[in-house]
Design a protein around this nucleic acid. Structure first.
Lengths: 226, 226
DNA sequence: ACAAAAGTGTTTTCTATACACCCATGA
DNA sequence: TCATGGGTGTATAGAAAACACTTTTGT
């Protein structure tokens, strides 16, 4: 037990990189920081890890406070622990990235925090090392999505294949053939076609699909390249 | 600044899951814990994060202390933060997995810590949540290795293709065709064949290869499925 | 009728897999 | 010489990529 004595103790925070997809663009949710230092600067949404919770739970709590959403897709990104990253006091931050359906969050809460969605390529200067966190999150999202069908987490319940394709293209920073994409994605068995069509982007209209939740759940056990 | 007041502070530790490959087996390095509680039980090698270092640096320091090695492949695994995971005092632990060339560590140091290599399928009961960490590390290694050529980190400078194949099979818990494996791996451009052969496993002998360091470095920018 | 997005058909290329078979050599 | 692991050759199947072309319907 002696070794525990005199070891330094630190503040531990969580910061969330919240991804959403809207209007054909991959976006990130940022808040105007409400406390000193750097008050009123843009920042990631975060909070301290409380005495009775794990970092995961803290991230979920923060996310719920900001968006009203529960059961959000959350994944550990990295630990940020430069001794001087927070000028007030040493704080280790656990970074998480979250994928949410951008149309489901509660506007009221967002307003309370003076939060705004920023297109991924138009992120402003953020406090501390938050810009680095965003860059790493983007990269990790890309790798993760190459083996796991997680991007559906950012789409509404009903979505079209062209919509899904745009999201893929945004995440991977690439263009792909529409015909091949359509076939590839329908062949996975993850999608169920609905009768309804979305005619907002073409006269012909694109069928809406929904996730096949059973296949989706199972796919998380496997390596699946989509 | 007011918000920083009265936030709880915690101990922050690192724990390393050290993988090595020897005798055709994937192994993990464990130590006999030297402090209370649970003294003399098997455990991962760990230590507290010092005031002047990041968790990464702490992990590197711990690893050097144990093996004498520097510049080891280290990657964040997860953060373990159950409020009661350490019975003495709340301690958050940052788990790392490390890949080392098992023949390069310094025996003397290992002896000092009463450390031993355990085949991956014969891990004893460990303290706290360390068994869970090992399980997660194994899974993460598999996923990571499916897109990045990191397994070379566990091989000596000179290695044969059958050796590499055995390592792959161990990590992925599978068997593959020797002919196809050989072609696949040589076609990546990551390997340079040497003149020398290893005749310890066959009369014909298997060529030694070394890493093409340039291609190897570049490959880390891409998604590469090996 | 026209234009433009959606998505199907078709061809070609590439990769993965299976497996027969040759190679080298110590015992 | 023969048994054995190390590899190459080859044939086939399946996936990916490229792209022509049809379908639909608001204008």
């Amino acid at each position: 037990m002696k070794e525990y004595v005199n070891q330094p103790h630190y503040l531990v925070a969580v910061d969330c990189i919240v991804f959403g997809f809207d209007d054909g663009q991959l976006k990130i949710l940022l808040v105007k920081r409400g406390l000193e230092p750097e008050i009123n600067k843009w920042s990631l949404m975060g909070g301290f890890v409380g005495a009775e919770e794990t970092p995961d739970e803290a991230a979920n709590r923060v996310l719920k406070k900001l968006t009203g959403l529960e059961g959000v897709y959350l994944e550990l990104l990295n630990i940020y622990g430069e001794p001087d990253r927070d000028p007030i006091e040493r704080t280790l931050s656990v970074g998480y990235f979250a994928l949410i359906d951008i149309h489901k969050y509660e506007t009221q809460l967002i307003d309370n925090y003076h939060a705004e969605w920023f297109p991924i390529n138009e992120i402003p200067k953020l406090i501390f090392d938050h810009n680095r966190m965003v860059a790493e999150a983007r990269k990790k999202l890309k790798f993760k999505a190459s083996l796991h069908p997680i991007l559906f987490e950012m789409l509404p319940k009903k979505f079209t294949i062209p919509q899904l394709q745009t999201l893929f293209e945004q995440v991977n920073d690439t263009k792909m053939d529409t015909g091949n994409f359509s076939r590839k994605v329908t062949s996975t068995g993850l999608l169920i076609r609905l009768e309804e069509k979305d005619k907002s982007n073409s006269k012909k209209g694109a069928y809406y699909f929904k996730l096949n939740k059973k296949s989706y759940a199972e796919s998380f056990n496997d390596l699946l390249s989509l």
